[in-house]
């Protein structure tokens, strides 16, 4: 049983976990959420534009969206974050005087998220029945308004579960901004866990960070499943027989 005790001491030292909790709540959690949510929103917006470019009739727009998506989906997250952060960081610093690695971290995460969400949006929009666009155009709406009012809203609704999964991935990937070097107040969950682990020589702070991540990602995963089921079946509503149909047209009896 010796090794079990050792494992317990290494991973589940409750004192070490308790020590790290305050800064995880006060610093790590807000920072992780800021990184994930801002890059998620920017990435979703850029992804929607990429999706519309991807289905556009303009071959240049389609090609540009294709190349962008291939590049940013094809690179490891840590490489993109380092290249953007270290490459553009100094330029950004000179332009704005800001030392924070966050803007570049958010930019890198958003660039990657855009590539993934773009593909998600595109598949959603393309899954909308062609008759929807046709019906909208037949009413007199142009292509742009038809997409905006009729096709895109339906496409987005269908891919909400996939978008949520993408957001979960972003929460996890936000940990990689630690590679850019963070000030004490800028540390997110992973970095706080890592610092405390390094200081104490014990891995329990990592476990604390893991619990924080799981506390966010597991409920979100189940929310995804719920939304998915709800979208499939819809809200139940009572149907009634089509008896009114026979009365409406007086012409039928004529």
């Amino acid at each position: 049983m010796d090794f079990l005790t050792r494992l317990g001491e290494t991973f589940l030292d409750w004192n070490k976990i308790a020590e790290v909790l305050p800064s995880m709540f006060a610093v790590g959690l807000p920072n992780t959420l800021v990184l994930a949510i801002t890059s998620g929103l920017i990435g979703a917006f850029a992804g929607l534009i990429l999706a519309l470019m991807g289905i556009s009739r303009n071959p240049v727009a389609r090609w540009a969206a294709r190349v962008y998506t291939d590049v940013f989906r094809g690179l490891p997250a840590v490489l993109t974050i380092l290249v953007i952060g270290l490459g553009f960081g100094p330029i950004f610093r000179e332009m704005t005087g800001s030392n924070s690695p966050y803007p570049m971290g958010v930019a890198a995460l958003a660039l990657m998220a855009a590539a993934y969400t773009g593909e998600i949006f595109r598949s959603g929009i393309q899954s909308v029945d062609k008759g929807q666009l046709e019906a909208s155009r037949a009413l007199g709406f142009g292509y742009g308004p038809s997409m905006r009012l009729v096709v895109v809203p339906q496409g987005i609704r269908r891919v909400l579960p996939a978008l949520m999964n993408q957001f979960i991935a972003l929460i996890k990937d936000s940990s990689l901004v630690f590679t850019l070097g963070l000030l004490a107040t800028e540390r997110e969950l992973f970095q706080i866990g890592q610092d405390a682990a390094a200081r104490s020589g014990n891995l329990s702070p990592y476990v604390a960070a893991a619990i924080f991540y799981l506390a966010m990602t597991i409920p979100l995963t189940h929310l995804v499943n719920y939304i998915d089921a709800r979208l499939r079946t819809g809200r139940p509503e009572k149907k009634e027989p089509d008896d009114a149909a026979a009365v409406v047209g007086k012409g039928a009896q004529a």
């Binding site: 089509d242 026979a246 409406v248 047209g249 007086k250 004529a254």
Partner: peptide, 9 residues
């Protein structure tokens, strides 16, 4: 029938 009746109207 109901739809045809409406079209007839």
């Amino acid at each position: 029938k109901g739809v045809l009746a409406l079209m007839t109207d």
